[in-house]
């Protein structure tokens, strides 16, 4: 019977383990999302530290935090599956998506109204002699 079967219609030459393929596919998809989101968040933090002016710092923080947070939460949602956890992660993503740009806008508006002027024109790095002898809080602006 078995010999007859293999003779007329050859069985699967490679038995594909679909469960493992699905598991690894999901794992790789969420890995890509989480790692790219973490890199975005890290780039935002680096921008907040290194940018020369308050408004450029705000740009770095506001843009990258929104995108990076959504990426990371999407990657976690893929791992949580259809469960209560996914609903909660969806809520976190929704709130962050609403509040992060709003808070950034509020900070920018408050800074502009309080008289903080943005640096205009091309950025000119300060000379080393200008930086020396200053405290870090003075030199950073």
């Amino acid at each position: 019977m078995a010999a007859d079967n293999t003779h007329s219609a050859p069985a699967n030459p490679v038995d594909i383990p679909w469960d493992a393929v699905l598991e690894w596919g999901l794992a790789l998809a969420s890995t890509g999302l989480i790692v790219s989101g973490a890199i975005f968040v890290l780039a935002g933090a680096l921008g907040v530290l290194r940018m020369p002016d308050f408004f450029t710092r705000m740009h770095a923080a506001g843009m990258t935090d929104t995108l990076g947070a959504e990426f990371i939460l999407l990657g976690l949602m893929l791992q949580a599956g259809f469960s209560q956890m996914t609903l909660k992660l969806l809520l976190v993503a929704f709130f962050l998506f609403l509040t992060s740009p709003t808070a950034t806008h509020a900070i920018a508006n408050a800074a502009l109204k309080s008289g903080l002027k943005p640096q205009l024109g091309p950025y000119k790095a300060p000379e080393l002699s200008e930086i020396e002898g200053k405290t870090p809080s003075e030199g950073a602006h």
């Binding site: 308050f54 808070a103 950034t104 900070i107 408050a110 309080s114 903080l116």
Partner: peptide
């Protein structure tokens, strides 16, 4: 800690 203006600190706290 090093932020020169108050708004830098508010931004850092939010982020």
């Amino acid at each position: 800690i090093a932020g020169p203006a108050l708004y830098d600190r508010a931004l850092a706290v939010n982020s």
